[in-house]
Design a protein around this nucleic acid. Structure first.
Lengths: 343, 343
DNA sequence: GCGAATCTTTGAATCGTTTCATTGTTACGA
DNA sequence: TCGTAACAATGAAACGATTCAAAGATTCGC
């Protein structure tokens, strides 16, 4: 079969008009039972499949939504994507997924591609400063929702997670379980997420007069970066050691854990409690299962689609920013501090 | 701006015919310099963006390729996807990505969706037995290439990685570095990948008369499963211990590593060498950097696109299966066995 | 200055679907 | 039996880009 069957072929084959076939597909109630059966039979026999391009052309818009993420490999985004797909499916839309890989050129490519596809709207976790480009989109009537990034509410809707609250939650948990000499391990504070998490932690520490927070700069957010911070701590010796460590993400925490447990100088959680951020899959299967802060990724994806739907359906531009609060996940690495005295 | 500008609007605005605008876009050489400038100016002023639906409709086919993977979160697929996208871009095509999440219903949805989109072809890592469905596609002229799954060559092209060879490579490496009492750790052998890797390992072991291979069944392929196998080994004691362990994937290997290093009963690689499979990001940052088998994911993705392009361009169905050989990555966890004597 | 060859531009026809005003059909009460 | 309402089916027009035969403009050799 060289060319796929069109609605016209179906019409001929069933001896009806094209409009009737269209009605069978879109408004089955308008068609009599007998005709419907004939048409459905013809559709089946010819293996007819709707041509979406023609539908779109006629409709003036597609039934797809564009989603551009920084890195599909990142579990955070994978989860957001899945939630967005499910939410979109409820509206009868599909999600076109683009992975910018932190690359502004790829990002720009996807924006262009999606625009040519006449997506109903765009969800994007932008690489750099694409506000101009997005402004253009907006002017052209493509509503856009920023994901994991706060937006100027006069221009865009957005969904994000409150990193300050997450930092507070982590530090507060360490304090609540009796730790007082806290340390924060995190990469360059030029990264907003890192800065916010630190700030939240500082806020919590200020609430306890006798608590202190030391900031240990790490060289990035990797396991290896965590390990070198950990090694530094081990060399410091017992006196100088914090009794609670909050790492800006789980990879760092796993690195710190490796250093501390490998040398067998200190025990987790008895000597030092350790908490990470993101609750990656590995957290639960670490040598000592790692406490962490979980981000509500499903809610993020779902809400992003909802905000976009709002914008698509209403004419006048009313934007909203939704900020989610992350959640504390307690595991063994921060088990009650009481144990630390009976060593 | 309510409706986006069409080629007709541009034509009017630039006082030329629609055909001319089309030529500026598609055959710039056919148009005189002066006209081209006028048209480009109009395009810019109106913010004109091609309507892909209309293009497709006229062209009879899209410039996209569908790709359905089992799990975008899996680094293996993430890498395949990226390579496929890059390869497709060279042909001027874009990749529509679908994540079936091992769910046959989601998979079927994507197949339907992609068919309505009139994709040029389909790359798929199928969930279950979708051969019937794919047969239908084939009959309708949508060429399909199976990814990471061998295909009946009379029907489909496919790309896959030779797991038997990978298993051989891993075991051979352990043998080459002096180990003789090998163990294989892996989940249910009903999983093809696991069975093939084991078979390859057995093949290597048979080449050395004095070598043995013990099979240790694990309950799945997770870190925790690996840890429980590791714990079992620790309890066995030094006499009974293998001196080389090959795990069916890196997660298992990391679990085994945790058990062995945590108890400080055995050292890696002096007492036991350890090698995994997949070369995940964590392998390099394990407590003892983990040797592993790397799969040529980039080549997989690229070749899949190439095979698909072949099928799209040629009329008569000539299918090919390309099988890649994985690659050994040596790290500290299998460092030379010589060291094991001077303990 | 003329005819031929080359280069530009034109605009109607086309792709496949949906829409909708129109026509055709049936049922029913008066 | 007629008129009317409700229901079914029809098919032309429209969506926006591309194609291509044909017309128009320009260049060149002689």
């Amino acid at each position: 079969m060289n060319r796929s069957a069109s609605i016209k072929d179906v019409a001929t084959h069933a001896s009806v008009a094209v409009g009737t076939v269209s009605n069978v597909l879109n408004y089955p109630d308008r068609v009599s039972q007998r005709t419907k059966e004939r048409v459905l039979k013809a559709i089946d026999e010819l293996g007819f499949v709707r041509n979406d391009a023609a539908r779109q052309l006629r409709a003036g818009h597609s039934r797809t939504v564009g989603l551009i993420v920084l890195d599909v490999g990142n579990p955070f985004f994978t989860s957001v994507v899945r939630a967005a797909e499910d939410a979109a499916a409820l509206n009868g839309s599909a999600v076109l997924l683009g992975d910018s890989g932190h690359d502004a050129a790829r990002e720009a490519n996807y924006i262009d591609l999606f625009q040519e596809q006449r997506v109903q709207g765009l969800l994007i976790s932008p690489v750099g400063d694409v506000t101009e480009r997005l402004d253009l989109l907006r002017e052209r009537g493509v509503p856009t929702v920023l994901v994991d990034r706060l937006a100027d509410e006069s221009k865009f809707s957005s969904v994000a997670v409150d990193d300050d609250a997450g930092g507070y939650l982590a530090a507060r948990h360490l304090l609540d379980t009796g730790r007082r000499r806290l340390a924060f391990v995190g990469g360059p504070t030029s990264i907003r997420q890192v800065a916010d998490r630190l700030q939240g932690a500082q806020r919590a520490v200020k609430e306890e007069p006798d608590a202190t927070l030391e900031v240990l700069n790490s060289d990035g957010q990797s396991v290896l970066a965590g390990r070198s911070v950990g090694n530094m701590l081990v060399e410091r010796g017992r006196e100088d050691l914090p009794d609670g460590i909050f790492c800006a993400n789980d990879l760092l925490a796993l690195g710190v854990m490796q250093s501390l447990t490998m040398t067998h100088t200190f025990r987790i959680p008895e000597d030092v409690a350790l908490i990470g951020y993101d609750d990656i899959d590995f957290a639960v299967s670490a040598v000592v299962p790692l406490s962490s802060i979980r981000q509500p990724t499903e809610a993020l994806g779902r809400t992003a689609i909802e905000l976009l739907t709002e914008e698509v359906e209403s004419q006048n531009p009313m934007h909203r920013s939704v900020v989610f609060t992350p959640e504390l996940v307690v595991r063994q690495s921060t088990a009650a501090a009481g144990a630390s005295t009976d060593s």
